[in-house]
Design a protein around this nucleic acid. Structure first.
Lengths: 179, 179
DNA sequence: CTCTTCATGTAATGCGTTACATGATTTA
DNA sequence: TAAATCATGTAACGCATTACATGAAGAG
């Protein structure tokens, strides 16, 4: 299978909600969807140009103050087709799940190795912090539980929470196996 | 932070257990650690050469039959140092967690969208199958529960199982929110 | 007036996948 | 004798990160 270039679909998906500038798109990867994808501006700006060349986007110039111009991109009908085709296509099982810490554990074969416990405890601190942070986000963004519009946002956050929950539980189990 | 090249450490870790050929290393990524990392032979063979040039590995030639020669690689003291330094270093929080399906859900904002249910059900089939497969692996490879030697192998499998468990639960929750 | 944020690009480099390429050995 | 597996490499290409580069606008 060829490389997928999923970034283009994410950009189209975000622009389908509302037109955005490259700068705003970049920020989007630091908030909501940052839990399940990341991208830098150096990747986003060229991709925007490619999508516009392909006819999936158009942009309008906005001037702030005296000189500063920014480009606000909007999705076209062609772009919407591309987006919908991706959404309708079967999702291949992710080949990913790369986890550096899990690997490290694998390479310390002896349960009595003195390095194990401090490693696990350090991870526990990090993942517990991340988990509480995500739980707080979920509670403040969705105080009334699952919404009808914006369900995906809710589900993605809930998924992130329970992913961290699982990781913490796993670390706790692992700790019971080493001295 | 520079690129990490984790593959080198995985190779060193595997060779620390026992000397292996490039072919055998490649297969290792399809079994145990395949749950948390993947690599093709086109990446492994060059990396073996680099590691040998760096003095982390040595190889001996073995001849099978008449002509077929294979290279069996073993870790050196230098290589062992590299491995231990990696194991001792703090593990940076994974920036990953790329999940195409979670993204798709995010981009279907309406909980009543007719596409939601079949998408979720398709994923449920896949992840349930994967989960039962992993549970079976865990049960057959470790019928007596957690071992003292080879704990990492046990933990990595258990982690994979509970990861799939979480994913299935999440999908089930998501299904309760759409008609 | 300085620092932070807004705003947009390009260049260099590395990681990872797919495809290309070859040949030996074993098994059915 | 044909197919599957063993066995080792290189080449092309795309994705992603880091660094380089520039400048305007707002806040303190």
């Amino acid at each position: 299978m060829a490389q997928r270039n999923l970034l283009q679909f994410i950009i189209l998906g975000l622009l389908h909600q509302t037109p955005l500038t490259g700068y705003e798109l970049t920020k989007a990867f630091d908030s909501d969807i940052g839990e399940f994808w990341s991208a830098q501006h150096s990747q986003i700006y060229p991709q925007l140009q490619k999508l516009e060349t392909a006819g999936s986007l158009t942009h309008t110039e906005e001037v702030t103050g005296e000189k500063l111009a920014r480009k606000r991109y909007a999705i076209t009908d062609t772009g919407l087709d591309t987006l919908n085709n991706w959404l309708a296509a079967p999702t291949p099982a992710s080949t990913n799940g790369k986890d550096e810490f899990a690997l490290k554990l694998y390479f310390i074969p002896d349960a009595n190795d003195a390095r194990l416990r401090p490693m696990l405890e350090a991870q526990q601190v990090e993942h517990t912090a991340k988990r509480t942070h995500l739980e707080h986000q979920l509670a403040t963004k969705f105080p009334d539980g699952a919404p009808t519009v914006g369900l995906g946002h809710y589900l993605i956050l809930q998924h992130a929470v329970s992913r961290e929950h699982e990781y913490c539980d796993w670390l706790a189990t692992a700790l019971t196996h080493c001295r």
